[in-house]
């Protein structure tokens, strides 16, 4: 079944937005100066990147099969629940290992 061009454009928009966010997250991971700043990039940008892909996939399969396909939402939901947890555990591990901080960082991590 050929897709409506408007729906196709919408799917393409979400796909491009999602992969751009994932790319920005990876760039952040690559070039930010210390661990704690690097922690910001993947936990958010990448999660949103997958979110964009998943929305595109939802729209695509709903339009193609003519019936609502929402199960991809589970992936986003799961990621949104787990991403903060893994970021938190990693931050605690990093604080315990006393990683080097960027020079302009104000404030101090707590002693574990």
């Amino acid at each position: 079944m050929p897709l409506n061009p408007w729906i196709e454009a919408l799917v393409a928009l979400f796909l491009v937005a999602g992969s751009l966010f994932a790319l920005i997250g990876a760039i952040g991971l690559y070039r930010l100066p210390d661990f704690f700043t690097r922690l910001h990039a993947p936990t958010k940008a990448t999660t949103l990147g997958v979110g964009g892909m998943v929305i595109a996939s939802m729209i695509y399969f709903s339009a193609r099969n003519g019936s609502l396909s929402l199960h991809e939402l589970l992936i986003t939901l799961f990621l949104f629940i787990t991403a903060p947890v893994s970021a938190h555990v990693l931050a605690k591990a990093a604080m315990q290992q006393k990683l080097r901080l960027h020079d302009s960082t104000r404030g101090k991590p707590w002693q574990q």
Partner: peptide, 28 residues
């Protein structure tokens, strides 16, 4: 450091996730 590597692995699996979803759309 080790936490950096774990963070990179974490990002890697999320990226793999996005790639798989994308591949699923490509193959329909």
């Amino acid at each position: 450091d080790l936490p950096d590597r774990v963070l990179a692995l974490d990002t890697l699996y999320i990226n793999a996730l996005a790639l798989i979803v994308l591949f699923g759309i490509w193959l329909g």
